[in-house]
Design a protein around this nucleic acid. Structure first.
Lengths: 228, 228
DNA sequence: GAATTTCTTTGACTTAAATCAAAAAATGGG
DNA sequence: CCCATTTTTTGATTTAAGTCAAAGAAATTC
């Protein structure tokens, strides 16, 4: 069923069965074409979303058109919650990276449910807290580390999430990765090349073999690997 | 009384009187010397804080010792909530910038209270959401704007908060401001000088007169003021 | 109020990463 | 399978901002 993924979302963890039903009952499913705009920065938000299938990017654009990706969310992950609670507008934009399906939860009705169920409120607090934590490292990375360190950190993180720790597979394009890391495709390309030359990694399309995990970890911490 | 400031905190807005009392009852006051460390990144968090008096900075340090300030909080503002809900460690460190007093709210007991009072939960959700929104712009600024634009944005924001919109007064040192803007004191100093030469501002210690508000606003949006 | 510490500014230099331009690969319909 | 679009790579060049070093101001303390 459509909502099975949603029901497994962190947001609804440990929710009593009848509450879960009530929550899912207020959701509306929306199919999205690749590239479809879900909402734009500055728009008022009258609800939030959960990805059911596909991938959604949350991003900001500069006037010159450069993009900074804040998150890329997959199945089960909620997004667009900020205006629900801050009463403000969307602080960033959302777009389907590939053909996707999402559930929409209207603000009003969701707030009613959250008021009635502390578990739901605590889950939402946990979601926002983790996101805050993630932003914290994104800010640290942008401000205190250079691109190679950010990339190394990303690869190390990926390897922890994926089954085989010695080979990771990017689930996004290199262009998107560049934008997520706060740089541009040209720079990312050059750095991937350099890391290959130093035998830290081996790149093969979206597959990246981690040849020197420890070296990557050190680089990620921004202590140059073996001080040159 | 000590807790009057805390009771005016956004966190406790619209809280029924007896609930407010119950919440304040679990708080413990802590006096802090200037420079006192409140918690460090990586430490487990067993509660959060509210500033009663003084100023607290939340920051990250790189290995090389460069600092990125994430927030500077004053009276009424809560901080250190992330681990309370994420179950994780503190993602950043906190230090008193000046002699201060804070209230500490132990995790366990606060969670009990929040479970019992939806208003409190919703207030906390609002706090975290706004913070998420703030981080969003911090990330955008770091990644998509250059230092002069960030500084201009900061000044414009300050002028909106303060009574007299044509003259702002920094409530933090220039060194701290540099760190907050993701740069170093030398660079900030040079940029203040440049902006003075262009008659955008006039600097006098911590007082900065905004001579060309529109120019600053445009610069903040990163569209160069009058294209050079 | 002289002295020590801290904060801010200035100068000369280096560098990481952006820009611009264009070639080379990869992808995806028709 | 081929063409057209999109994505990625390479090269040459520019530039914003960092580093290092040291002088000047301000603030604090004795």
């Amino acid at each position: 069923m459509n909502k099975t993924i949603a029901s497994q979302s962190i947001l609804f963890k440990e929710l009593p069965a009848h509450h879960l039903e009530a929550v899912l009952a207020i959701a509306v499913e929306k199919p999205l074409e690749k590239g479809a705009l879900i909402f734009s920065e500055g728009e008022p938000g009258n609800g939030f979303y959960i990805v059911v299938e596909g991938q959604v990017k949350i991003y900001k654009l500069s006037l010159e058109g450069k993009e900074q990706i804040l998150h890329i969310f997959g199945p089960g992950e909620p997004f667009g919650e900020v205006p629900v609670f801050s009463g403000d507008v969307f602080p960033a934009s959302a777009e389907a990276v590939k053909k996707s399906r999402v559930l929409f939860f209207p603000r009003r009705r969701f707030i009613e449910l959250i008021s009635a169920d502390p578990t739901l409120a605590l889950n939402m607090l946990a979601v926002l807290s983790r996101r805050l934590r993630d932003f914290t490292v994104q800010i640290e990375d942008l401000s205190l580390k250079e691109v190679p360190a950010r990339l190394a950190g990303y690869l190390v993180l990926l390897s922890k999430e994926q089954q085989n720790p010695s080979e990771v597979c990017l689930h996004i394009s290199k262009g998107h990765l560049a934008s997520f890391l706060g740089t541009i495709p040209e720079t990312l390309s050059r750095i991937l090349k350099k890391m290959s030359e130093k035998d830290l990694i081996r790149v093969n399309g979206k597959k990246i073999r981690l040849l020197d995990y420890e070296g990557l970890r050190m680089l990620a911490e921004s202590g140059r690997p073996g001080q040159e």
